[in-house]
Design a protein around this nucleic acid. Structure first.
Lengths: 202, 202
DNA sequence: ATCCGGATAGTCCATGTGGACTAGTTGAAA
DNA sequence: TTTCAACTAGTCCACATGGACTATCCGGAT
């Protein structure tokens, strides 16, 4: 079993389906209502295509096609065991890395699928990576300044440094917090009630 | 003159060509040496395709095809007047907005193509937008907490708030700084010497 | 003298993305 | 009562992306 390629949206779909079977349109609604489109842009094209790909990879399977009146058919999907496992593998690969931002954000949002300790270790690894990058940024800025590069060309790099520091600071704050048993952890049998269909308030 | 669609990389290519005629491979080298691949991933496929697109849009033109020994031909491009104008238009559209991050970063890096005052106004507009977004994030967090959503599901949102604040703080610091005439501004006739090719200019 | 890695310069293609489109179905206003 | 906007559910396609590949040349190590 090769490590199948997953996009961030693919991971979010798999994670969603672990909460219950669903058809793509409902995924879109749920993801949007949870404001998960902050991390990944959710468009019909990409979502349906992603679902088809997951299906082709055997990570999800059809569990029913029903229709309501004269509306288009809805195909309901369920996650397969290998799909369920793929989420953990993916998060394990990405949470400690410093890849694309949107990749990390999804990994972070799904970090609770890992053991607490493993998440702490991976996040610590990421922090070290970011520290190294920060050093490079500082060196770049120092070098540019010493070469007399005018400020106007260094604005974006300055912002990058600022946000890199903020990211590291945030990790330095988070890591000890989630290390403590006071911090809730684990996927748990129940999911946040407000995000389930219970309220049905839309 | 429709507002032609430009990708971030396209804008960077146009901006580069305003410094001098160049062939794509040299663009890649220069962009990478300036570490502009922090903002936009630079791969051959995307770069050459982007250049072809700009050419098709009439924003750049061929100014010579030469070859060195038996190496592949190199096509040198120059920016056209409409291409040069398109940079400013694009930056004007994107600098004050809160669109994709990589889009903003490129707009910021090219902000010196605008008048100082205009840049200040646009950045202020962006700050206001970010403030509004921050309020939404805070509201989301407050609501989730009041509904008893466990912390583990709010980690990513917490990071988002932290970085959003950092972004706003950075703008609050930058805007008054670049407003002052002490801050160098404008494209200027000379470019940072370390990044030029020494001779062969203008 | 040769071998090999890296630079030069670019092509090609599978896949992912996002926007436009179809088409029936409520629900509320005019 | 009609009408219009918004929702439900999904298809389709143009285009952007990024990785793999080709092929030559140069310089240093073997």
């Amino acid at each position: 079993m090769k490590d199948v390629a997953l996009t961030p949206l693919g991971v979010m779909v798999l994670a969603l389906l672990r909460e219950g079977d669903m058809h793509p349109y409902e995924m879109a609604r749920l993801l949007r209502s949870r404001r998960d489109d902050r991390m990944v842009t959710i468009t019909n094209g990409t979502l349906y295509h992603t679902v088809a790909r997951l299906h082709g990879q055997g990570l999800i399977e059809e569990v029913g096609i029903d229709r309501d009146g004269n509306r288009p058919e809805r195909t309901t999907y369920a996650v397969t065991p290998s799909g369920s496992a793929a989420v953990g593998e993916w998060v394990r690969r990405e949470l400690g890395a410093a890849g694309r931002i949107s990749t990390f954000r999804v990994a972070l949002a799904e970090a609770h699928n890992l053991e607490r300790e493993e998440a702490v270790e991976l996040l610590s690894a990421r922090r070290d990576l970011l520290r190294g990058q920060l050093d490079e940024i500082e060196a770049g800025l120092a070098g540019a300044e010493s070469r007399g590069v005018p400020e106007q060309y260094l604005i974006e790099l300055g912002r990058h440094r600022h946000l890199q520091r903020a990211d590291i600071d945030w990790l330095d704050d988070l890591i000890p917090r989630i290390s403590s048993p006071d911090f809730a952890w684990g996927p748990g049998p129940k999911h946040p009630p407000a995000t389930r269909k219970a309220s049905q308030n839309d």
